[in-house]
C-alpha cells in the first residue's frame, strides 16, 4: 500500500513539474532547448516512475515492520519547524534551548537534565560559532545581554 502512496505522490509531483515547465519554455522562446525542457523531462520521468510504482504488484511489508511512534515523531518534527520559524525572533540561544527541551522530552529524557543540557548546548554552540568562528547568529530577545546596549 505504501508504494502506491509513494507512486501517487511521484505522479502528482511529476505532473506539476511538467505542467509548470511548459510555461517556462513559452515564457522564454529560446531555441532549441529552453529553460523548461530539462524540468519537463524530469517531470515525465517522475510520472513514469510513479505509474510503475502504483501498477506493479505490491511487495509484502517486511516481517516485524511496525507503525512509527507517531506522537513523538510529530512532536519532534513540529519542534524543528517551530525552531526554524522562531530562530531569528527568539534568537539562537533561546530558540535552541526551547527546541532542545521539546526534542529531548520527545526522546523521553529526564526533564531536569534535558532542560539543563539544552541550555548548556545552546550557550556553548553560541560561544563556539558566534564568538570564536565568526558565524553570525541572531541574538534575538537576548540581544541586550549578548551584545550589550550598543550592539
Amino acid at each position: 500500500m505504501n508504494d502506491q502512496i509513494l507512486g501517487a505522490s511521484c505522479i502528482a509531483t511529476g505532473a506539476y513539474l511538467a505542467w509548470t515547465a511548459v510555461d517556462y519554455s513559452i515564457l522564454a522562446a529560446v531555441e532549441p532547448v529552453g529553460p523548461g525542457t530539462f524540468p519537463a523531462l524530469l517531470g515525465g520521468l517522475l510520472v513514469g516512475g510513479g505509474l510503475w510504482l502504483v501498477l506493479r504488484p505490491c511487495p509484502l511489508p517486511p516481517p516485524g515492520a511496525q507503525a512509527p511512534p507517531w506522537p513523538p515523531v510529530a512532536a519532534t518534527m513540529s519542534a524543528v519547524l517551530a525552531y526554524a520559524l522562531l530562530f531569528e525572533w527568539l534568537g539562537f540561544v533561546l530558540a535552541t534551548a526551547l527546541m532542545a527541551l521539546a526534542v529531548g522530552l520527545a526522546f523521553s529524557g529526564p526533564w531536569k537534565r534535558v532542560l539543563a543540557g539544552g541550555a548548556v548546548l545552546a550557550g556553548l554552540l553560541y560561544l563556539l560559532f558566534d564568538r570564536l568562528l565568526g558565524v553570525r547568529l541572531p541574538p534575538g530577545l537576548l540581544s541586550l545581554v549578548l551584545t550589550g546596549p550598543g550592539g
Partner: peptide
C-alpha cells in the same frame, strides 16, 4: 540521544544559517 538529537538539529541550523543568514 536526548541531547544528541537536538544537538544535531542545532548544529545543522548553524550550518544552514551560515550560508545566507536567512530564516
Amino acid at each position: 540521544r536526548w541531547l544528541l538529537a537536538p544537538g544535531l538539529v542545532a548544529v545543522g541550523a548553524v550550518v544552514v544559517y551560515s550560508v545566507h543568514a536567512a530564516w
